[in-house]
Simulated scan of single mutants.
Amino acid sequence: MRLLPWTNDFGGPCWLSTANPDSRISRMADELEAAMIASAEEVLSEARELLAESAVGEQELRFAGTRLAESLRDTLRIAASRGGRLESEG
């Protein structure tokens, strides 16, 4: 079973029951994971720039913190999914 990088309508996990890494859904999940990681890298870069400024407003910090939390959530989900696949391969 593969944990997918998206959730269902209730915020719960979505699982894929196929061992075929070339299935359409597997490829779509791989592409979304890559996009999520790229987005997290961009958010991190922007947040670092913002934090390097001497005068930053509360709204900017809250926005950056929210985006960082979202990115961390997404990357942890990807790590859990990939870790689960490694365990099933071993």
Rank of each mutant, 00 (worst) to 15 (best):
L16C: 02
G12M: 04
E46Y: 05
S45E: 13
L51C: 11
R85Y: 07
P13H: 02
G57C: 01
M28L: 14
Q59A: 15
R27M: 06
A34H: 09
R82S: 11
G12H: 00
A35S: 14
G11R: 08
M36R: 05
I25S: 06
E41I: 06
G65R: 11
S81Y: 01
M28I: 11
M1N: 07
S71E: 00
E31A: 12
L86N: 12
S45C: 10
E58P: 03
S39T: 10
L4H: 08
G65K: 05
G65V: 00
D30T: 09
E42G: 05
E60Q: 15
I25K: 08
E53K: 15
S26N: 00
G83K: 12
P5C: 01
A35V: 05
A40G: 06
A35P: 03
E53M: 07
E70H: 03
R73F: 13
E33D: 14
D74E: 10
A80K: 13
S45D: 07
A80P: 04
N8G: 13
W6D: 07
D9K: 10
G83C: 12
G12R: 08
E42P: 04
R2M: 04
N8S: 09
S81V: 01
A64H: 05
A69H: 12
E70G: 04
A47D: 03
M36G: 05
G12E: 09
E33K: 13
S45F: 10
N20M: 02
A64T: 06
M28W: 08
P21G: 09
L50W: 03
